[in-house]
Amino acid sequence: MENQCLAVPFVPAQTWDLLYDPATALAEGTVFPGLNKPFFAAPEGCNTTLPAAADDPQILFSQYCFVLDDLLLYLDTHPQDEQAKACYQSFLVKKKELQKSASCGCCMTDHFEWDKKPLVWEGGHC
């Protein structure tokens, strides 16, 4: 708090706390409950279009990748946080295991085979 003084912005540093599960994280746009500040015109719990992991194994890959994206930014400003580092590593392992498993061909197709599946902007994903 010593940095709080007149005429300069101050934002308190986030501290490590419990995380959302990966499905909730992707639906809410953050893995950190403390940073989830929805707009009243977009009430919580109305994410109706995101498929469930049970119906779409590829969405699980998107969920893990997103948790990693959010944790990476946390680590950028908390590089000494051992709990966060361990959590990041655990999701990295989960992502790699999913990539290896037969149920998900996520990001396995070589880039030059663009015509083998729908393009990402057409609604195809990983």
Binding site: P9, F10, V11, P12, Q14, L26, A27, E28, G29, T30, F32, L35, N36, K37, P38, F39, A42, N47, D70, L73, Y74, D76, T77
Partner: peptide
Amino acid sequence: KFLRAREVVHFQRFG
């Protein structure tokens, strides 16, 4: 809504 939530997270990180 997802993109909006990211703005809030990025604000925290820049802070």
